[in-house]
């Protein structure tokens, strides 16, 4: 396997996203908040003439909102025809995957299992392979609240 992975930190854990899915890494400018949306949606921001939905990955995983130093840069990914900017703790590196994604007995923990495809080995150590679609869908209970509200 020679798939390239973008390595990042989310909530203090090392995660990997397929480099193919990451369009670019941008300096995050002004983020316009969007009222009446789940709190993991930090707002929208502009990339050229395109509007990006900014996702706070920590919250999207269901972690509480505490002050946390995040990377001033955001990873731009495209899911389902829409572009999102992901706020991450840090964007580290691009590296190659070693071997197939595997599972760990006992899972990765409640929050992580929902968004993780599996564990991968990279040249810089193990990391969680993130399923972007699941990440962007947000925490399960938030989705429940939404449909209640709607």
């Amino acid at each position: 396997m020679t798939d390239l992975m973008v390595m990042a930190q989310i909530a203090g854990r090392r995660c990997a996203m397929p480099a193919h899915d990451v369009q670019s890494v941008i300096e995050l400018g002004t983020v316009t908040p969007v009222p009446q949306t789940p709190d993991f949606i930090a707002g929208i921001t502009a990339l050229r003439s395109q509007a990006l939905t900014v996702i706070d990955c920590r919250r999207a995983l269901g972690f509480p909102a505490i002050e946390w130093n995040t990377d001033p840069r955001a990873a731009v990914v495209s899911v389902g025809g829409f572009s999102y900017a992901l706020i991450l703790d840090a964007i580290e590196d691009i590296t190659t995957i070693i071997g197939e994604p595997g599972q760990v007995t006992g899972g990765f923990g409640a929050e992580w299992s929902r968004v993780a495809t599996g564990m991968i080995e990279t040249s810089s150590g193990p990391a969680l392979l993130i399923d972007l679609e699941a990440l962007i869908a947000g925490p399960a209970d938030d989705v429940g609240n939404l449909s209640d509200a709607a």
Binding site: T30, T32, V34, P35, Q36, T37, P38, I41, I44, T45, A46, S49, Q50, A51, T53, G80, F82, Y84, I136, A137, G138, L146, A149, A150
Partner: peptide
């Protein structure tokens, strides 16, 4: 421009647009 489904879901918004200064 259309918005991501997660934002559209609440039904308050029909889309987004950019102001002159590039702010969405």
């Amino acid at each position: 421009k259309p918005l991501a489904p997660a934002v559209m879901q609440n039904g308050y918004y029909a889309g987004s647009t950019l102001l002159d200064d590039g702010q969405p």
